[in-house]
């Protein structure tokens, strides 16, 4: 697969709205056409070529280099192809994406994968708040797809998510899986407060003890087979899953009983 490489010419101090950085938009375009794509730097319209040195054309893979922590909406809404980012990524990375793959060799800011409906986001550093979540006022967050974060993530991971899988190798902030409708969140580190608050269905898997809300009720201690399936699949994707997690028992709690109560929090008890 041919690549288009975008190298940030100099650090941007004002947020750059760059939803045009997407394999869907780049498809079939020459280098000049890619350079001419519109972006907003603050409230001023500019061209992509004003901020990035562009190499290559007509490719389904985009490589981004530089400190992109203020470049927003990279890959937002994309449906195919791949974006590789060597550096940090700004807010709304891959938001509402429906397919393809984004790999961040650095950190990602808030709302990464928000309301995504397919595809994969791999973040090798940390992620911000609202990972895979629903925007304010939206009924549903992530709805299909896979997000893996090798570092930590902020608050409201998977808020109101409907489908899909979010994996955080490190810790998450407060309200992880709050208002979940379905889907799976796996946190290998520690979770913050109020995990699963208001969840109707869905699964939160924790590997450390956590303070549960009183509206979760203990069911049993068992070995959920489906979790083995997921963990083996994640291991194949480079997530560090020990054998003890595969073989261990999990405490199952149902909740949130203030709502439907068909959600579950599984807490690893040990091998």
């Amino acid at each position: 697969m041919e690549k288009v490489t975008l190298r940030l010419k100099e650090p941007v101090t004002v947020p750059l709205e760059a939803e045009v950085i997407s394999p869907d938009t780049f498809q079939g375009k020459t280098r000049a056409e890619i350079e001419g794509l519109p972006v907003y730097c603050g409230n001023e319209e500019g061209r992509l070529g004003d901020f990035f040195a562009v190499q290559g054309a007509e490719a389904r893979e985009i490589v981004l280099e530089g400190d992109l922590s203020r470049v927003k909406q990279i890959g937002a809404g994309m449906t195919r192809g791949r974006i590789s980012i060597y550096g940090d990524a700004g807010m709304h990375l891959g938001a509402t994406m429906r397919g393809g793959e984004i790999i961040v060799h650095g950190n990602a800011s808030d709302w990464a994968g928000a309301e995504m409906a397919g595809g994969m986001i791999y973040i090798q550093g940390n992620a911000g708040h609202g990972l895979g979540g629903a925007y304010r006022g939206s009924a549903r967050g992530m709805n299909r797809g896979l997000i893996i974060v090798w570092g930590d993530a902020g608050n409201e991971v998977g808020n109101a998510m409907r489908r899909g899988v979010i994996v955080v190798q490190g810790n998450t902030g407060d309200f992880t899986g709050a208002f979940m409708i379905a889907g799976t969140i796996i946190v290998l580190g520690r979770l913050g407060d109020r995990a699963g608050a208001g969840m109707k269905r869905g699964t939160i898997v924790a590997f450390h003890r956590l303070q549960l809300l009183p509206t979760f009720r203990y069911d049993c201690t068992y070995r959920p087979t489906f979790l083995r399936l997921l963990l083996i699949g994640l291991r194949a994707r480079g997530v560090d899953i020990g054998d003890t997690y595969l073989e261990g028992h999990y405490l199952r709690y149902s909740g949130d009983l203030t709502t439907l109560g068909k959600g579950e929090i599984l807490i690893w008890e040990g091998a």
Binding site: R163, A182, R201, T203, T225, L230, G233, K262, E264
Partner: peptide, 12 residues
Amino acid sequence: ISKLWDGRRFWR
């Protein structure tokens, strides 16, 4: 409970 993984749906 339904779980979707790798494009395949499973039932628990």
